[in-house]
């Protein structure tokens, strides 16, 4: 069984947002990590490998050179091969463009299962998985919170998480694309062997071709929408003020 896991590099939650005067999203230029949803996607692939025979896991990421860090991370976490689809410049890429780049690489490679995260923490589109599936002509399920191989060896029992924690169940015929929700498993730490291997093993590098945009877009910081009252002063003064507010609202 061949599995492809799509991993994205995202800025740290606490990193400052940098948007230039032209509405382009330009930063940060440091403090990146793997999209958390994709850690679950990788762990799910590793679990398949532990329970099935002959599973090979490839991890792919689309982006500038810096994203090689998450591809190496994916190998530390258990991917056998790392694939870098290289984009020559920085900057936002829409989900249909990312999906088209992955399609270009993944078509005709015989993947039985492609695993994405439910959503990227920075862009929050929740689209790349289902877009890629449709472009490849494969079935897709999102918000996957449980996935188990059926006895026939060629379909999965899937649980999809819907609002309020309810679950919808499906039988999904492979090959297919699933987008996994956090909580589907418990991602583990890398093993030493994998860490050493990830250091040495070369990545497969592919130069991406240009893909035309479908929409126009711009970015702006959100702080202007509405802001609550900032409580200022030393921490002690802030604490005192909160207690006063609680009394004022008759909550304490």
């Amino acid at each position: 069984m061949k599995i492809l896991v799509c991993v994205k590099q995202v800025p740290d939650t606490e990193a400052p947002v940098a948007i230039d005067a032209g509405g382009r999203w330009v930063g940060p230029v440091f403090s990146f990590r793997m999209n958390r949803f994709d850690e679950y996607a990788l762990e799910e692939a590793v679990l398949f490998k532990e329970f099935q025979h002959d599973v090979a896991i490839d991890a792919v990421s689309v982006g500038p050179e810096r994203v090689q860090a998450v591809i190496r991370r994916a190998m530390e976490l258990g991917a056998d091969t790392g694939v870098h689809i290289e984009i020559s410049r920085e900057g936002y890429m829409p989900p249909e463009v990312i999906a088209a780049h992955i399609l270009e690489y993944a078509r005709n490679k015989g993947y039985d299962l492609i695993i994405c995260g439910a959503m990227s923490e920075d862009c929050m589109h929740a689209q790349v998985g289902p877009l890629l599936a449709e472009m490849m002509g494969l079935p897709s399920l999102t918000a996957v919170i449980a996935a188990h191989m059926r006895e026939d060896g060629c379909s999965l029992d899937i649980e999809q998480e819907i609002e309020g924690g309810l679950r919808r169940r499906f039988e999904l015929v492979l090959p297919a694309v699933i987008s996994v929700q956090t909580g589907i498993n418990h991602p583990r730490y890398p093993t030493l062997t994998n860490v050493l291997r990830a250091k040495r093993q070369p990545l497969k590098r592919i130069m991406a071709r240009e893909i035309p945009l479908m929409n126009r877009f711009g970015f702006r910081e959100a702080a202007t929408v509405k802001q609550g009252v900032m409580i200022t002063g030393s921490m002690r003064e802030q604490a005192r003020e909160v207690v006063r507010i609680l009394h004022e609202h008759a909550i304490l």
Binding site: P11, T13, V17, I19, G23, W25, E121, D122, C123, M124, L213, M214, N215, R216, F217, G218, F219, R220, E221, A222, V225
Partner: peptide, 17 residues
């Protein structure tokens, strides 16, 4: 308009198709 970065910034999109 949609949120990005857990709501820290907004993205405006004009569909061309």
């Amino acid at each position: 308009t949609r949120a990005i970065l857990n709501g820290k910034a907004h993205m405006d999109i004009v569909p061309d198709l």
